[in-house]
Design a protein around this nucleic acid. Structure first.
Length: 581
DNA sequence: GCCGTTTTCGGCCCGACTGTTTTCAGTCG
């Protein structure tokens, strides 16, 4: 499947066209086509082979030809011409905030600047102020931009910034008494990583005070700028946080606008135009009279456009607009639907809490049941349990179950070994999660062979953290074929895990979406190694929501009795597999 | 470059800010 490669090439063309100063409509045409292909579930090769490329939204004759050329020859002549025309170094200059395609190209050609370091040197030497339509202020702005660029932490995983952002919101609410304060942007959409964070405040009179409070608090490493309605700061960890103050009459429109995504918003504004309306961050207006018809509440914006309200997690222009127009959005799973947690560790392996500690925490969270899955032997460093230890754990769990008053199922997290064998599985176990913990850098073929052997052995009930990735640049996903893995899971009727350890989120939203559409059942596992970590369920729930999951798609919503019945079935299935222990 | 139950040509999402300028282009979100 070459969809990803095609998407990247189309985006690259768009970037080059931007620098060339081509019509912005031509540029967005390439971006739109890339977006369409990015969200395609079938291989682009098949669509091309069927001669159906131009039936894709945003793909016309010209782009279809370029895609076809790439798929048949491995290159796009048009892109190669662009590369010859425009030096690659210009892209680096555009990394600096305040420098766009035009200025980057001028700096390159007029001053011969080839890197950000050379740019800084040119600015310090006062060479920039001598350019046409540039001055001392513009030069200083570039130096400031370079400073911000150097401070920028880039995109960071959501979990690294979420606690601080929640603290900011509750601090401002508490100090000002203002209710309408909310994060927006990709943070509110629960993207797994965020660039900068937007916090929105609605107040008609206290804007100055809010900005003063925000810009002088402990979380400020540096104030980037401060005005009447906007303030930007950088946290000690290098994340930029923007605070925006809006009027209460525009709260809903602003929240909608700043939550994005950009593609989602563009679609909404197109719908507005088709109805003789205009949508911006202040409200929804009639084009003819300028009369405002919505703005104070976000829900009203969608309704006035004839759309069902779209939850933030779905606003990625991945089909949610069409579904909302049909009033046919999924009834997304919520935290309140969760009745239990599958996949957690105790002191029997590498967890920090006893069975009782974990049970008490689950009880406190209002759960009916938990499934404990300690590591099995075969995982060198962690010191997993063998069958004898597992039986002792089962005995203890039965005692704790009565004492705490919550159903405790005892499964195991079995290792899928380098040869694809499963270590260990037994018909008495309530649930067997199969996970790869070693050889994650193996070839795609090798990884898929391991998965295939493990799944078709009939010894495992689910796949844990399927890609093995760790967010924040710690570990990339394994080289694997997710579509093939899901097909195998479907064929053998096993479950897929949404691991909600915050640095995993594995499966992620798009893969949850795929699995759901294939009819594969999913569960959320916190993979907790301490009682507190069970609260990470919220990350799993929102990841599931980003994958359009409903209550019926997720095992955690079953009652204790329903889980017991399911576990009984799984045990019978495993017992029918002949294997020697 | 794409697209069309008003269109095969003339549109295409919206607004704020900034710096260097007398009317706007470039950049950003």
């Amino acid at each position: 499947m070459k969809n990803k490669e095609v998407v990247e090439l189309l985006r690259e063309i768009a970037e080059y066209l931007t620098i060339k100063g081509e019509s912005r409509f031509k540029i967005s045409a390439y971006e739109r086509a890339a977006h369409t292909i990015e969200n395609l579930s079938e291989p682009i090769e098949e669509i091309d082979a069927a001669g159906k490329l131009t039936s894709l939204p945003g793909v016309g004759k010209s782009i279809a030809e370029k895609i076809h050329e790439y798929l048949t020859t491995g290159r796009i002549t048009y892109l190669e011409e662009l590369k010859r025309e425009i030096p690659r170094e210009v892209f680096e200059l555009m990394e600096v905030p305040g420098i766009g395609p035009k200025l980057a190209m001028r700096l390159y050609t007029e001053l011969g600047v080839r890197s950000i370091d050379e740019l800084e040197e040119a600015a310090r030497q006062g060479r920039i102020r001598k350019m046409k339509r540039m001055g001392v202020k513009a030069e200083q702005k570039i130096l400031r931009g370079i400073e911000i660029y150097k401070m920028d932490a880039g995109r960071v995983p959501l979990f690294t910034i979420r606690p601080l952002v929640l603290e900011m919101v509750s601090y401002l609410k508490e100090k000002t008494g203002i209710e309408k304060i909310s994060p927006a942007g990709s943070f509110r959409r629960w993207r797994e990583d965020v660039g900068d964070v937007d916090i929105l405040v609605a107040t008609d009179t206290e804007g100055d005070r809010v900005i003063e409070l925000f810009s002088t608090a402990d979380w400020v490493h540096e104030v980037l700028w401060k005005g009447d309605t906007k303030c930007s700061i950088v946290t000690p960890s290098g994340v930029q946080v923007d605070l925006r103050v809006v009027k209460t009459e525009s709260w809903g429109a602003a929240l909608q606008y700043f939550t994005g995504s950009k593609a989602h918003n563009i679609r909404l504004r197109e719908i507005a135009i088709s109805k003789g309306l205009k949508l911006n961050e202040y409200g929804l207006f009639r084009e003819d009279t300028g009369k405002k018809i919505a703005g104070e509440r976000e829900e009203d914006i969608y309704e006035a456009l004839g759309l069902q309200y779209v939850p933030p997690e779905l606003r990625e222009d991945m089909g949610e607009i069409d579904a909302a127009l049909r009033w046919d959005l999924p009834d997304l799973i919520t935290q309140q639907d969760i009745k239990g947690d599958i996949h957690m560790h105790t002191t029997y392996s590498d967890g920090a809490g006893s069975i009782r500690d974990m049970a008490m925490k689950a009880k406190g969270m209002g759960y009916e049941w938990i499934v404990i899955t300690d590591h099995a032997i075969g995982l060198g460093v962690v010191g997993g349990i063998d069958l004898g230890e597992w039986r002792r754990q089962l005995e203890e769990a039965k005692r704790v179950e009565k004492e705490v008053g919550i159903r405790i199922f005892v499964g195991i997290e079995a290792n899928i070994m380098s040869d694809g064998s499963v270590m260990i599985s037994h018909p008495d176990m309530d649930f067997v999660v199969g996970s790869i913990h070693s050889g994650l850098d193996g070839s795609r073929q090798k990884i898929m062979e391991r998965y295939r052997k493990a799944i078709f052995s009939g010894l495992i009930d689910s796949i844990g953290h399927p890609t093995g990735r760790l967010l924040g640049g710690v570990r990339p996903p394994m080289d694997m074929d997710m579509d093939e893995l899901l097909s195998m899971a479907k064929e053998k009727d096993i479950f897929m895990e949404i691991n909600s350890y915050p640095n995993r989120l594995d499966l992620n939203g798009p893969n949850v979406f795929k699995a759901k559409n294939m009819g594969i059942k999913l569960y959320i596992g916190t993979d907790s190694h301490a009682p507190m970590q069970m609260e990470n369920m919220v990350y799993g729930v929102h990841t599931a929501r980003r994958g359009w999951a409903e209550k019926g798609d997720i095992l955690n919503t079953l009652s204790a009795d329903e889980i017991e019945a399911l576990v009984g079935e799984l045990k019978r299935k495993r017992a029918s597999v002949s294997v020697s222990y």
